[in-house]
Computed example of a mutant assay.
Amino acid sequence: EYAIAIADAAGNVVAEQNLDTPYTPASTMKTLTAYAAAATLDMGSTLETQTYLEQREDGTSRLVLKGNGDMLLGVGESDSAHINGRAGLGTLAANTAQALRQRGITSVTLVYDDSLFGNDRWPNGIAELDPDHVYYAPTASMAVDGGRNWNGANPTDPDTFSTYPVLSTQPAREAALVFAQRLTERGIAVNGSVKQGAVPDGTSPIATVSSASLNEIMAFMLRHSDNSLAEEFGRLLALHLNAGNSPAGAVQSVEQVLAQRGISTEGLTMVNCSGLAEDSKLTAHTLLDVQQRNLTSGSGSAAAEGLSIVGFVGTAANRLNDADEAGLIRAKTGSLGDVTSMTGNVSRHNGGALSFAVIVNDPDDSEAAKSAIDTFVAALPKL
Protein backbone atom coordinates (compact mmCIF):
# COMPACT_ATOMS: atom_id res chain seq x y z
CA GLU A 1 0.00 0.00 0.00
CA TYR A 2 1.55 3.26 -1.03
CA ALA A 3 1.07 6.85 -2.10
CA ILE A 4 3.53 8.75 -4.25
CA ALA A 5 3.34 12.23 -5.72
CA ILE A 6 5.36 15.05 -7.30
CA ALA A 7 4.37 18.71 -7.50
CA ASP A 8 5.96 21.76 -9.08
CA ALA A 9 7.06 24.76 -7.02
CA ALA A 10 3.60 26.31 -7.30
CA GLY A 11 2.03 23.20 -5.79
CA ASN A 12 0.55 21.81 -8.99
CA VAL A 13 0.57 18.00 -8.84
CA VAL A 14 2.28 16.67 -11.96
CA ALA A 15 2.32 12.96 -11.13
CA GLU A 16 0.63 10.91 -8.43
CA GLN A 17 -0.63 7.54 -7.28
CA ASN A 18 -3.18 7.41 -4.41
CA LEU A 19 -2.66 11.12 -3.74
CA ASP A 20 -5.69 11.43 -1.45
CA THR A 21 -5.61 8.05 0.25
CA PRO A 22 -4.64 8.27 3.94
CA TYR A 23 -1.73 6.15 5.13
CA THR A 24 0.35 5.91 8.30
CA PRO A 25 3.14 8.47 7.74
CA ALA A 26 5.59 7.76 10.60
CA SER A 27 7.92 10.71 11.23
CA THR A 28 6.98 12.64 8.10
CA MET A 29 4.11 13.79 10.35
CA LYS A 30 6.72 16.04 12.01
CA THR A 31 6.73 18.27 8.92
CA LEU A 32 3.15 19.28 9.77
CA THR A 33 4.04 20.14 13.35
CA ALA A 34 7.19 21.95 12.26
CA TYR A 35 5.38 24.08 9.71
CA ALA A 36 2.51 24.98 12.05
CA ALA A 37 4.93 25.98 14.82
CA ALA A 38 7.31 27.86 12.53
CA ALA A 39 4.46 29.78 10.91
CA THR A 40 3.10 30.90 14.27
CA LEU A 41 5.80 31.16 16.95
CA ASP A 42 8.62 33.69 17.15
CA MET A 43 11.36 31.41 15.85
CA GLY A 44 14.08 33.86 16.81
CA SER A 45 13.15 33.65 20.48
CA THR A 46 14.91 31.51 23.09
CA LEU A 47 13.90 29.44 26.11
CA GLU A 48 15.22 30.62 29.45
CA THR A 49 16.18 28.48 32.43
CA GLN A 50 16.21 30.58 35.58
CA THR A 51 16.85 30.61 39.30
CA TYR A 52 14.77 32.51 41.86
CA LEU A 53 15.56 33.21 45.52
CA GLU A 54 13.14 33.20 48.41
CA GLN A 55 14.58 34.38 51.73
CA ARG A 56 12.32 33.13 54.51
CA GLU A 57 11.49 34.61 57.89
CA ASP A 58 13.31 31.78 59.68
CA GLY A 59 16.56 32.88 58.05
CA THR A 60 16.76 30.03 55.55
CA SER A 61 17.09 30.53 51.81
CA ARG A 62 15.03 28.63 49.24
CA LEU A 63 16.28 28.51 45.64
CA VAL A 64 13.91 27.66 42.81
CA LEU A 65 15.17 26.32 39.48
CA LYS A 66 12.56 27.11 36.83
CA GLY A 67 12.44 25.68 33.34
CA ASN A 68 10.74 27.33 30.40
CA GLY A 69 11.06 24.58 27.82
CA ASP A 70 14.78 24.11 27.15
CA MET A 71 15.17 20.35 26.76
CA LEU A 72 18.69 20.68 25.36
CA LEU A 73 20.50 21.95 28.45
CA GLY A 74 24.18 21.12 28.90
CA VAL A 75 25.70 19.81 32.12
CA GLY A 76 28.63 22.25 32.09
CA GLU A 77 29.39 25.67 30.70
CA SER A 78 27.10 27.23 28.11
CA ASP A 79 28.31 26.22 24.64
CA SER A 80 27.85 28.89 21.97
CA ALA A 81 29.17 26.55 19.27
CA HIS A 82 26.33 24.02 19.52
CA ILE A 83 22.56 23.87 19.68
CA ASN A 84 22.54 21.03 22.21
CA GLY A 85 24.05 22.55 25.33
CA ARG A 86 23.82 26.20 24.24
CA ALA A 87 22.60 26.89 27.79
CA GLY A 88 24.70 25.15 30.42
CA LEU A 89 23.67 24.27 33.95
CA GLY A 90 27.27 24.84 35.00
CA THR A 91 27.08 28.45 33.82
CA LEU A 92 23.70 28.89 35.51
CA ALA A 93 25.14 27.49 38.75
CA ALA A 94 28.16 29.79 38.58
CA ASN A 95 26.02 32.88 38.02
CA THR A 96 23.60 31.79 40.73
CA ALA A 97 26.41 31.13 43.21
CA GLN A 98 27.83 34.59 42.56
CA ALA A 99 24.43 36.20 43.15
CA LEU A 100 23.99 34.23 46.37
CA ARG A 101 27.41 35.11 47.75
CA GLN A 102 26.71 38.77 47.05
CA ARG A 103 23.78 38.37 49.43
CA GLY A 104 25.88 36.54 52.01
CA ILE A 105 24.19 33.20 51.31
CA THR A 106 26.24 29.99 51.28
CA SER A 107 23.55 27.33 51.70
CA VAL A 108 20.07 26.82 50.25
CA THR A 109 17.28 24.34 49.89
CA LEU A 110 16.60 23.64 46.22
CA VAL A 111 13.31 22.99 44.47
CA TYR A 112 12.51 22.88 40.77
CA ASP A 113 9.48 24.33 39.00
CA ASP A 114 8.37 22.01 36.21
CA SER A 115 4.86 23.42 35.89
CA LEU A 116 5.09 24.79 32.34
CA PHE A 117 3.34 21.92 30.58
CA GLY A 118 0.86 20.95 33.29
CA ASN A 119 0.32 17.34 34.31
CA ASP A 120 -0.33 15.61 30.98
CA ARG A 121 3.00 14.77 29.33
CA TRP A 122 2.24 11.57 27.39
CA PRO A 123 0.60 11.93 23.95
CA ASN A 124 -1.60 9.13 22.70
CA GLY A 125 0.05 6.20 20.95
CA ILE A 126 3.61 6.66 22.19
CA ALA A 127 3.77 4.54 25.34
CA GLU A 128 2.60 1.46 23.44
CA LEU A 129 5.34 1.81 20.83
CA ASP A 130 8.16 2.80 23.19
CA PRO A 131 8.21 0.40 26.17
CA ASP A 132 12.00 0.70 26.49
CA HIS A 133 11.97 4.55 26.54
CA VAL A 134 14.39 5.07 23.66
CA TYR A 135 12.21 7.24 21.38
CA TYR A 136 10.43 9.68 23.70
CA ALA A 137 11.16 11.57 26.91
CA PRO A 138 8.09 13.19 28.50
CA THR A 139 7.64 16.83 27.52
CA ALA A 140 9.32 18.85 30.27
CA SER A 141 10.16 22.41 31.19
CA MET A 142 13.83 21.42 31.16
CA ALA A 143 16.05 18.47 30.35
CA VAL A 144 19.72 17.71 29.83
CA ASP A 145 20.48 16.63 26.24
CA GLY A 146 16.84 15.78 25.56
CA GLY A 147 16.86 13.34 28.46
CA ARG A 148 19.42 11.08 26.77
CA ASN A 149 21.37 8.84 29.16
CA TRP A 150 24.61 8.03 27.37
CA ASN A 151 26.23 6.28 30.35
CA GLY A 152 29.64 7.70 29.52
CA ALA A 153 29.37 7.09 25.77
CA ASN A 154 28.48 10.69 24.90
CA PRO A 155 29.15 11.67 21.27
CA THR A 156 32.08 14.00 20.62
CA ASP A 157 29.74 16.47 18.94
CA PRO A 158 26.56 16.95 20.99
CA ASP A 159 24.66 17.98 17.85
CA THR A 160 25.61 14.88 15.83
CA PHE A 161 24.69 11.29 16.69
CA SER A 162 22.71 8.42 15.23
CA THR A 163 22.10 6.05 18.14
CA TYR A 164 19.17 5.87 20.53
CA PRO A 165 20.20 5.73 24.20
CA VAL A 166 17.63 5.20 26.93
CA LEU A 167 15.70 8.40 27.71
CA SER A 168 14.78 9.76 31.10
CA THR A 169 11.18 9.47 32.28
CA GLN A 170 11.76 12.38 34.71
CA PRO A 171 13.90 14.80 32.68
CA ALA A 172 13.18 17.92 34.75
CA ARG A 173 14.07 16.20 38.02
CA GLU A 174 17.31 14.85 36.55
CA ALA A 175 18.22 18.33 35.27
CA ALA A 176 17.61 19.69 38.77
CA LEU A 177 19.89 17.06 40.30
CA VAL A 178 22.65 18.01 37.86
CA PHE A 179 22.16 21.66 38.76
CA ALA A 180 22.41 20.83 42.48
CA GLN A 181 25.73 19.12 41.84
CA ARG A 182 27.05 22.08 39.85
CA LEU A 183 25.92 24.47 42.58
CA THR A 184 27.71 22.43 45.26
CA GLU A 185 30.89 22.44 43.18
CA ARG A 186 30.74 26.23 43.24
CA GLY A 187 30.65 26.44 47.01
CA ILE A 188 26.92 26.63 47.71
CA ALA A 189 25.65 23.87 50.01
CA VAL A 190 22.34 22.28 48.98
CA ASN A 191 20.45 21.15 52.07
CA GLY A 192 18.17 18.14 52.00
CA SER A 193 16.68 16.50 48.93
CA VAL A 194 15.67 18.25 45.75
CA LYS A 195 11.89 18.45 45.38
CA GLN A 196 9.31 20.06 43.14
CA GLY A 197 8.15 23.55 44.02
CA ALA A 198 6.97 26.81 42.53
CA VAL A 199 8.47 30.21 41.89
CA PRO A 200 7.35 32.67 44.60
CA ASP A 201 4.93 35.33 43.44
CA GLY A 202 6.39 38.75 42.75
CA THR A 203 10.01 37.66 42.44
CA SER A 204 12.51 38.12 39.62
CA PRO A 205 15.23 35.68 38.55
CA ILE A 206 18.71 36.10 40.02
CA ALA A 207 20.35 34.21 37.15
CA THR A 208 19.35 33.07 33.65
CA VAL A 209 20.76 31.07 30.76
CA SER A 210 19.23 31.04 27.28
CA SER A 211 18.77 28.21 24.81
CA ALA A 212 19.55 28.28 21.12
CA SER A 213 16.83 30.00 19.07
CA LEU A 214 13.66 28.08 18.32
CA ASN A 215 14.78 28.11 14.70
CA GLU A 216 17.94 26.19 15.62
CA ILE A 217 16.10 23.83 17.95
CA MET A 218 13.65 23.01 15.15
CA ALA A 219 16.53 22.14 12.82
CA PHE A 220 17.92 19.84 15.52
CA MET A 221 14.50 18.26 15.98
CA LEU A 222 13.94 17.58 12.29
CA ARG A 223 17.42 16.32 11.51
CA HIS A 224 17.39 13.89 14.45
CA SER A 225 13.67 13.15 14.10
CA ASP A 226 13.46 13.92 17.83
CA ASN A 227 10.01 12.89 19.03
CA SER A 228 10.32 14.67 22.37
CA LEU A 229 11.08 18.02 20.74
CA ALA A 230 8.37 17.52 18.11
CA GLU A 231 5.81 17.03 20.85
CA GLU A 232 7.21 20.05 22.67
CA PHE A 233 6.79 22.28 19.62
CA GLY A 234 3.16 21.19 19.53
CA ARG A 235 2.79 22.07 23.20
CA LEU A 236 4.46 25.47 22.77
CA LEU A 237 2.08 26.15 19.89
CA ALA A 238 -0.92 25.18 22.03
CA LEU A 239 0.19 27.50 24.83
CA HIS A 240 0.66 30.32 22.32
CA LEU A 241 -2.84 29.79 20.90
CA ASN A 242 -4.46 29.18 24.30
CA ALA A 243 -5.71 25.86 22.96
CA GLY A 244 -5.26 23.83 26.14
CA ASN A 245 -2.14 22.77 28.01
CA SER A 246 -2.25 19.12 26.91
CA PRO A 247 -1.16 16.77 24.11
CA ALA A 248 -4.71 17.00 22.72
CA GLY A 249 -4.40 20.78 22.67
CA ALA A 250 -1.14 20.44 20.76
CA VAL A 251 -2.72 18.28 18.05
CA GLN A 252 -5.70 20.63 17.83
CA SER A 253 -3.38 23.61 17.43
CA VAL A 254 -1.37 22.05 14.60
CA GLU A 255 -4.54 21.10 12.74
CA GLN A 256 -5.96 24.60 13.28
CA VAL A 257 -2.91 26.34 11.81
CA LEU A 258 -2.76 23.97 8.83
CA ALA A 259 -6.39 24.64 7.99
CA GLN A 260 -5.96 28.39 8.39
CA ARG A 261 -2.99 28.29 6.00
CA GLY A 262 -4.95 26.43 3.33
CA ILE A 263 -3.17 23.09 3.70
CA SER A 264 -5.28 20.06 2.89
CA THR A 265 -6.35 18.21 6.05
CA GLU A 266 -8.70 15.80 4.30
CA GLY A 267 -8.01 12.33 5.67
CA LEU A 268 -5.75 13.67 8.43
CA THR A 269 -5.76 11.81 11.75
CA MET A 270 -3.12 13.18 14.12
CA VAL A 271 -2.82 10.92 17.15
CA ASN A 272 0.15 12.99 18.28
CA CYS A 273 2.55 15.62 16.91
CA SER A 274 5.56 13.39 16.23
CA GLY A 275 4.14 10.59 14.09
CA LEU A 276 5.11 7.98 16.69
CA ALA A 277 1.73 6.26 16.46
CA GLU A 278 0.45 3.53 14.18
CA ASP A 279 -3.06 5.02 14.06
CA SER A 280 -1.97 8.41 12.70
CA LYS A 281 -2.96 8.93 9.06
CA LEU A 282 -2.40 11.54 6.39
CA THR A 283 -2.33 11.82 2.61
CA ALA A 284 0.51 12.56 0.23
CA HIS A 285 -1.55 15.61 -0.73
CA THR A 286 -1.09 17.07 2.77
CA LEU A 287 2.65 16.42 2.72
CA LEU A 288 2.95 18.13 -0.69
CA ASP A 289 1.02 21.16 0.53
CA VAL A 290 3.43 21.55 3.46
CA GLN A 291 6.45 21.26 1.19
CA GLN A 292 5.03 23.81 -1.23
CA ARG A 293 4.88 26.27 1.68
CA ASN A 294 8.48 25.33 2.48
CA LEU A 295 9.48 26.45 -1.02
CA THR A 296 8.15 29.95 -0.45
CA SER A 297 9.72 32.70 1.62
CA GLY A 298 8.08 34.15 4.68
CA SER A 299 6.71 32.67 7.88
CA GLY A 300 7.36 29.00 8.30
CA SER A 301 10.77 29.06 6.65
CA ALA A 302 12.35 27.46 9.72
CA ALA A 303 10.47 24.26 8.88
CA ALA A 304 12.29 24.14 5.53
CA GLU A 305 15.72 25.13 6.82
CA GLY A 306 15.72 22.24 9.28
CA LEU A 307 15.15 19.47 6.75
CA SER A 308 17.81 16.80 6.39
CA ILE A 309 20.06 17.21 3.35
CA VAL A 310 20.39 13.91 1.53
CA GLY A 311 24.02 12.82 1.54
CA PHE A 312 25.12 15.39 4.11
CA VAL A 313 23.21 15.83 7.36
CA GLY A 314 20.34 14.39 9.36
CA THR A 315 18.42 11.14 9.09
CA ALA A 316 18.76 11.25 5.27
CA ALA A 317 22.56 11.61 5.34
CA ASN A 318 22.98 7.98 4.27
CA ARG A 319 20.14 7.96 1.74
CA LEU A 320 22.13 9.32 -1.22
CA ASN A 321 21.62 7.10 -4.25
CA ASP A 322 23.46 9.26 -6.81
CA ALA A 323 26.51 11.38 -5.96
CA ASP A 324 25.47 13.92 -8.61
CA GLU A 325 22.43 14.78 -6.48
CA ALA A 326 24.33 15.54 -3.26
CA GLY A 327 23.01 18.73 -1.68
CA LEU A 328 20.03 19.04 -4.04
CA ILE A 329 17.46 17.14 -1.98
CA ARG A 330 16.07 18.28 1.38
CA ALA A 331 13.93 15.67 3.06
CA LYS A 332 12.23 14.31 6.13
CA THR A 333 12.34 10.55 6.52
CA GLY A 334 9.92 8.30 8.33
CA SER A 335 10.25 4.76 9.66
CA LEU A 336 7.89 2.90 11.96
CA GLY A 337 7.29 -0.84 12.02
CA ASP A 338 5.84 -1.59 8.58
CA VAL A 339 6.06 2.03 7.40
CA THR A 340 8.75 3.77 5.37
CA SER A 341 8.24 7.26 4.02
CA MET A 342 9.95 10.42 2.80
CA THR A 343 8.86 13.91 1.87
CA GLY A 344 10.79 17.00 0.88
CA ASN A 345 11.77 19.36 -1.89
CA VAL A 346 14.34 19.30 -4.65
CA SER A 347 16.48 21.75 -6.61
CA ARG A 348 16.34 20.75 -10.28
CA HIS A 349 19.42 20.57 -12.52
CA ASN A 350 17.78 22.77 -15.14
CA GLY A 351 16.44 25.31 -12.68
CA GLY A 352 13.42 25.55 -10.46
CA ALA A 353 12.24 23.30 -7.69
CA LEU A 354 9.67 20.64 -6.96
CA SER A 355 8.28 18.80 -3.95
CA PHE A 356 7.57 15.14 -3.40
CA ALA A 357 5.98 12.70 -0.99
CA VAL A 358 6.20 8.91 -0.70
CA ILE A 359 4.49 6.75 1.91
CA VAL A 360 4.72 2.95 1.92
CA ASN A 361 2.67 0.88 4.36
CA ASP A 362 2.99 -2.88 4.92
CA PRO A 363 5.66 -3.64 2.29
CA ASP A 364 6.64 -7.25 1.65
CA ASP A 365 10.27 -6.19 2.08
CA SER A 366 10.92 -3.01 4.07
CA GLU A 367 14.53 -2.63 2.94
CA ALA A 368 13.53 -3.05 -0.70
CA ALA A 369 10.83 -0.40 -0.25
CA LYS A 370 13.33 1.97 1.36
CA SER A 371 15.79 1.39 -1.48
CA ALA A 372 13.05 2.02 -4.06
CA ILE A 373 12.25 5.36 -2.39
CA ASP A 374 15.93 6.34 -2.57
CA THR A 375 16.06 5.44 -6.26
CA PHE A 376 12.93 7.46 -6.98
CA VAL A 377 14.11 10.52 -5.04
CA ALA A 378 17.57 10.45 -6.67
CA ALA A 379 15.97 10.88 -10.10
CA LEU A 380 13.94 13.97 -9.17
CA PRO A 381 16.64 16.65 -9.69
CA LYS A 382 16.94 15.52 -13.33
CA LEU A 383 13.28 16.25 -14.11
Rank of each mutant, 00 (worst) to 15 (best):
Y2S: 00
A3M: 10
A3I: 02
I6K: 02
I6F: 03
A7Y: 02
V13Q: 08
A15V: 15
E16L: 06
E16S: 14
L19F: 08
T21K: 12
P22D: 00
T28Y: 06
M29E: 13
A34D: 00
A34Y: 08
A37R: 05
T40S: 13
L41W: 04
G44T: 11
E48T: 11
Q50F: 04
L53H: 05
Q55G: 04
D58Q: 03
D58I: 03
V64A: 04
G67E: 04
N68P: 14
D70L: 01
E77G: 13
I83G: 05
T91I: 04
T91P: 07
L92W: 07
A93I: 02
A99W: 08
R101V: 12
Q102H: 00
S107Y: 03
D113R: 01
D120F: 01
N124H: 12
A127I: 12
A127E: 13
E128G: 13
D132V: 12
D132R: 10
V134S: 11
V134K: 14
D145F: 15
D145E: 14
N149M: 14
N149D: 14
W150A: 09
N154P: 11
D157K: 05
T160R: 15
T160L: 15
S162H: 14
S162L: 14
S168P: 13
T169M: 15
Q170L: 11
E174T: 09
A175F: 03
V178S: 10
A180L: 04
I188C: 01
A189H: 08
S225N: 02
S225C: 02
S225D: 06
E232F: 02
F233H: 09
A238V: 00
H240S: 02
Q252R: 12
S253V: 10
L258W: 06
A259Y: 11
R261A: 11
S264Y: 10
E266M: 07
E266L: 08
V271K: 08
C273N: 14
G275M: 05
D279L: 14
K281C: 00
L282P: 00
T286W: 01
Q291L: 10
T296H: 14
S299W: 06
S299R: 15
A304R: 04
G306H: 03
L307F: 10
F312A: 15
V313Q: 15
T315E: 01
D322R: 01
A323H: 09
E325K: 15
A326N: 12
A326K: 13
G327H: 06
L328P: 03
K332A: 05
K332C: 02
S335V: 06
S335G: 04
G337F: 11
D338N: 13
V339C: 06
T340G: 01
T340F: 09
S341G: 09
M342C: 12
T343H: 07
V346S: 02
R348H: 12
E367P: 10
A369V: 10
K370M: 14
T375Y: 15
A378H: 07
A379K: 14
P381M: 02
K382F: 07
